[in-house]
């Protein structure tokens, strides 16, 4: 089936089998391998992307469901070579260890701040309930999100 979507500002049209998962389509057809597959059971959040502006687990959606959608992946966050404030904050606060969960963590955190620009630590931890870090590096992830919220509030 034909499926077209705008990914990180670029239009793509492909012929896919209906059973193609969105994450598989992004990684294998569009070669956007920044979005990871972790558990593949909608629990770990490594595959979190934005579909029409909302955080979604790309392993639990078929590519055909995203026909006509506007999609942002981790590759689309930076603008003109300038890291997104969330990416900067993860870098500066050592918000990643092995890095496997990081794209999902960052996409989830960006969506969280859109709904709640100034979250408390508890709200950040609840907001990241759908994202697992198997290095258990949560402390610095929470610190990173807090720092990003502060820098984004400051008009950065």
């Amino acid at each position: 089936m034909k499926v077209s979507m705008r990914v990180n500002g670029v239009d793509h049209e492909h012929d896919v089998e209906p059973r193609t998962l969105l994450v598989q389509h992004l990684r294998e057809n569009l070669r956007l391998t920044g979005t990871h597959v972790g558990c593949d059971t909608s629990q770990c959040g490594a595959c979190t992307i934005h579909v029409n502006g909302e955080a979604v687990k790309a392993c639990t959606m078929f590519a055909i469901q995203a026909d006509g959608a506007e999609i942002t992946t981790i590759e689309g966050l930076a603008t003109n070579g300038e890291l997104h404030p969330m990416q900067k904050a993860f870098w500066e606060n050592h918000g990643l260890q092995c890095g496997y969960c990081t794209p999902g963590m960052i996409m989830a955190s960006v969506d969280m701040l859109k709904n709640n620009p100034n979250p408390t630590e508890e709200e950040i931890r609840h907001g990241l309930e759908g994202n697992f870090c198997r290095c258990t590096g949560y402390h610095n992830i929470v610190k990173s999100v807090k720092a990003a919220a502060e820098s984004m509030q400051g008009g950065a």
Partner: peptide
């Protein structure tokens, strides 16, 4: 239910 991303869909 689930987590924020699940609740979005």
């Amino acid at each position: 239910i689930g987590d924020p991303h699940v609740r979005n869909k």
